[in-house]
């Protein structure tokens, strides 16, 4: 792919990733989020955080499967979008759901394990976002990769947060657990080499 057409696609992806947030905004403005819009906002932003986390994690499997390296050039943007939706989710929780009642927020963090685990996931995302620049990648050298492997841990705690949050119906979290298992299994070294005919050189 030429450099020009790639940067066009990248821009398209950028706009596409913004759509869920814009749809949420539209939902608020047009009163389309149902009877409890705050609950809908917190939940849907949480859902999108997890989805973007998974999309980010599927980049390197996609590269392996297709043999195309341009996937990697989308990864930083997708990772930062994950952080963007996580920040939105947390802000909505603090600002709207808890309406800045810090006594409740503190109680939640210390007494409700699903919140504790959620917060842990969010806090661990911060150093990854901060070190996502070209400059930081160069500066950290080998340590950059080590640091960013933390995303595997974050993906597990994030899914755990969802699983623990659910009251009785764990079907949806189990779907996420299944997908995460596949995504993580991709990282394991394969005992045999599987030929992919569409891949150059394999």
């Amino acid at each position: 792919m030429s450099h020009r057409s790639f940067s066009f696609y990248k821009r398209m992806v950028f706009i596409l990733c913004l759509l869920p947030a814009l749809l949420l905004l539209e939902g608020v403005l047009n009163d389309r989020l149902g009877s409890n819009p705050i609950e809908a906002l917190v939940r849907q932003s949480g859902d999108w955080t997890l989805r973007f986390l998974f999309i980010t994690l599927s980049i390197s499997p996609l590269r392996k499967l297709t043999g195309q390296s341009y996937w990697i050039r989308l990864r930083r943007m997708l990772g930062l979008y994950t952080f963007f939706y996580a920040s939105l989710h947390v802000s909505l929780y603090i600002g709207l759901d808890k309406f800045l009642y810090w006594d409740e927020i503190v109680e939640d963090i210390f007494e409700r394990p699903f919140i504790t685990i959620g917060l842990l996931s969010f806090l661990l995302l911060i150093p990854l976002a901060v070190t996502s620049t070209q400059k930081m990648i160069r500066r950290l050298g080998k340590n950059w990769l080590r640091l960013h492997r933390m995303i595997y841990l974050i993906s597990i705690t994030a899914v755990l947060h969802f699983y623990m949050m659910v009251k009785a119906d764990t079907q949806e979290p189990w779907i996420y657990i299944f997908i995460l298992t596949l995504l993580l299994a991709f990282r394991l070294p394969l005992p045999i080499k599987i030929p992919l005919p569409w891949r150059k050189g394999s």
Binding site: S35, N36, I38, L96, K98, F99, Y101, D103, E104, E107, D108, E111, R112, F114, M165, K167
Partner: peptide, 17 residues
């Protein structure tokens, strides 16, 4: 409650607590 602080509530139709 293990899942929800019961100190305050949101009346459906209101933004505050």
């Amino acid at each position: 409650h293990p899942r929800w602080s019961q100190k305050r509530e949101r009346r459906i139709g209101e933004w505050g607590r």
